Amino acid sequence: MTKVALITGGTSGIGFAVAEALSKTGLWQVNIIGSDQEKGTKAAASLPQTTFYQADVRNYENLATTFDQIFNVGRRLDFVFVNAGIAGYDDHYAEESDNGIPPKPDLSVVDINMNGALYTSYLAMHYFRRSPESTKGDRHMVFTSSIGGLYPCALGPVYSSTKHALIGWVRSTGPRLWKDGIRVNAICPGVVGTPILENDAFESLFPREMWVDMQLVTETVLRLLSCTEMVDGKGMRVGSDEMHSRALHISGDTFFFIEMPDFHDEAAPFTWNAMMYGKLNV
């Protein structure tokens, strides 16, 4: 039976590349979501078994209606790629010349990268649970974070904060959702050639030889969807039953599983267990 994928930010960049890779397998009905009708229609027309839906991830009602339309076609949902995002390198350090109240900062990057991702995740949970029982364990939610979600980014601190938040969300919700047969993971690519980076200023900061090949990103996502054991660039091996709640840093020509920080005293693991599971011991 054909599986159903929903990809936000699917009309270009990483989202479109993953849509293309899935559509070529012939095993997926791919649904790409974006805000630009013309771009989305053109993107979907270039791929087999792909449909475009115009929606704004910042608008919950709009996004929820789109999820419902997609689900009602095949009465199932197998993969949600929480990918929509913008770079958002506004100058958050700007100094004003007078002593009055400063202008309101532009936090649209938070609305898209974080709020939109949380809306998407919330809706994905609902429709995964309405999918056939046989799909449990093979339901996937993959978030696009960033190297800027693993390491600080002074160039774009608001952007970096949203990407850190996504990793926190994956690690916090992943164990609980795995009980519902939903695998939640995050990819954290380095610099990838996408429309938001294709200008001279970025190339002066990040020479192309440092960029991550788009094919590596799509291959990593498809490997996550395969539900099989994966081995990273340092030889760390993660079995199928443990393939959830993970952050994968994609860099160079490989990927690396990034673990949570170590505990440094006896109190920390007890505190964490209480935070995660509502009890002191697991």
Score class of each variant (00 low, 15 high):
Ile7His: 04
Ser12Lys: 08
Thr25Gln: 01
Thr25Gly: 14
Thr25Val: 07
Val30Asn: 05
Ile33Glu: 02
Lys39Met: 03
Lys42Asn: 15
Lys42Gln: 13
Leu47Ala: 01
Gln54Ile: 09
Gln69Phe: 02
Gly74Thr: 11
Ala84Lys: 03
Gly85Glu: 05
Ala87His: 13
Gly88Pro: 05
Ala94Cys: 08
Ala94Gln: 11
Glu95Gln: 13
Ser97Pro: 13
Asp106Met: 04
Leu107Cys: 11
Ser108Arg: 14
Asn113Val: 09
Arg129Tyr: 15
Lys136Thr: 03
Gly137Pro: 00
Gly137Ile: 02
Phe143His: 00
Ser146Asn: 12
Tyr151Val: 15
Pro152Asp: 04
Pro152Val: 00
Cys153Tyr: 14
Leu155Met: 14
Ser160Ala: 09
His164Lys: 12
Leu166Val: 10
Ile167Glu: 06
Trp169Gly: 10
Val170Ala: 02
Arg171Asp: 02
Arg176Gly: 13
Arg176Trp: 15
Lys179Asn: 12
Ile182Gly: 09
Ala186Asn: 10
Glu198Leu: 09
Leu205Cys: 12
Leu205Ser: 15
Met210Cys: 11
Gln215Ile: 05
Cys227Thr: 15
Gly235Asp: 08
Gly235Phe: 05
Arg237Ala: 10
Val238Pro: 00
Val238Gln: 08
Asp241Lys: 14
Asp241Tyr: 03
Ala247Val: 01
Leu248Glu: 00
Phe256His: 14
Pro261Ile: 00
Phe263Val: 02
Glu266Thr: 03
Phe270Glu: 07
Met275Tyr: 12
